[in-house]
Nucleic acid binder design. Structure first.
Ligand code: MN
Ligand code: MN
Ligand code: MN
Ligand code: MN
Lengths: 232, 232
DNA sequence: CGGTATCTTTAGTTTAACCTAAATCGCGAA
DNA sequence: TTCGCGATTTAGGTTAAACTAAAGATACCG
């Protein structure tokens, strides 16, 4: 009738989100600090320490008290599976169900824990084993391989040089909608026509015409050269 | 005066499964007993009593100690939403992702709690607002309306009278595979050619030829007359 | 080199959802 | 009409995941 299924994995949603958050923060910081992780998970520092100790006991994380933590190989394997699920779901919602790219994140945040390995593979198959999600984030393979591209933030892109928007690091819905309005969507071609001094605004040419944008925002927009962008 | 419905509370997976199980058992029993429900949920009777008391306090269930419980209108509304999600997901997995009907239940058991209202509606739209899931179970509308058809178990169907398989009450994967082998899938035409006495086997004619089947199993197979079955 | 601000951990609590063991209820049979 | 048995509830305990308050460590600055 409605007997609950045996959990596919032995790990709780809390643990999965914890490991995933460490994985994502490790892209930026060599060691992940308690406070950074607490902030990312919207929980308190003591809760974070407690979970870190528990996962260290389980050998999913290596935690050196007072100086942060890193995933072990076992922890990374789990994190990559959740990241894969998340990004596959985001793309599936866009491709199969007409979601727009600014609506998918929250839905994926829950579904990433609820789908079976089998469903993840069916979705991947449906999508033709994609390598990138709707925000340009790379989708790890089922075996846990990811290739992070070497991309350059729009804020540091050279003047008068056409580039292609390839990845967006800030995925808050209002940020994504704002970037859409400026013509900065994945695959869009863009060129910087002027850069003001003192952290001043950038002037861009996009398909939608001339745009002005703050370099703090441009930091989130990663570009590739036109020919590099082809081979995605 | 915009009377937008108050943002509905969100209930735990345990509560949602509890309400759903009561709903399903109410189809059979006027009042749902503690032990029946405990068995359906694979939890102990004390855990069941405790949850019943909690949901009675929340006015989702009316619980008369020692003599079972029923859903209130509020509880039924939630149960129907979960049942709708479950059945939409089952059908979606079959229609969009090539699952077979014996594989979908367990997946839906988790996903039913993880999808948003918006995703449920997108899935319904994708499927063309369907009224029945892959097992012939009716899918409640978003407003909470269900129409249960009046169907007859194969075990009680008259001899030499063609009928159409319309719903399957037992959805264990091995049962569903067994019924498939016997040619008893949704929409299949069937006729009883002999019925042995003393609860003996039924002899059937299906598209796959002559079949013999135990009446205990035939009880789960619900039939409609050929013309009734046309109107879905 | 010491003082202090900030970050981190420890200690102790809470809540949800389960459990086992024991007490209690209700109903049918004697 | 009472007895006893099965069903149900009560009592008390456990675990996971959060919290606040307080203690401890690190690092930076003068
Ligand atoms: Mn998540
Ligand atoms: Mn993404
Ligand atoms: Mn469920
Ligand atoms: Mn079903």
């Amino acid at each position: 009738m409605s007997d609950r299924p045996a959990p596919r994995e032995t790990y709780s949603e809390a643990i999965e989100d914890f490991l995933k958050a460490i994985y994502l923060l490790q892209q930026e910081h060599e060691r992940v600090q308690t406070s950074t992780l607490a902030e990312a998970l919207a929980i308190t520092a003591p809760s974070t320490t407690e979970m870190a100790k528990k996962l260290a006991r389980a050998k999913l994380v290596s935690h050196e008290p007072y100086r942060g933590m890193r995933l072990t190989a076992a922890g990374e394997r789990i994190a990559l599976e959740i990241v894969r699920n998340h990004r596959l779901i985001e793309l599936f919602l866009v491709e199969a169900l007409g979601y727009s790219w600014d609506e998918v994140h929250e839905e994926a945040e829950r579904l990433e824990h609820a789908i079976s390995d089998r469903l993840a593979e069916r979705i991947a198959e449906y999508l033709g084993d994609p390598h990138f999600d709707p925000h340009g984030d790379p989708i790890p393979t089922a075996e846990g391989d990811v290739r992070e591209l070497e991309l350059t933030p729009l804020s540091e892109w050279p003047l008068h040089t056409p580039g292609v928007v390839t990845r967006l690091l800030n995925q808050a819905p209002d940020m994504l909608r704002y970037l859409s309005e400026k013509g900065l969507t994945i695959g869009a071609e863009v060129e910087i026509v002027a850069r003001d001094p003192f952290e001043g605004p950038l002037t861009l040419r996009t398909a939608g015409g001339k745009q002005v944008i703050n370099p703090n925002v441009a930091r989130y927009v990663l570009l590739a050269e036109k020919d590099e962008a082809q081979q995605r």
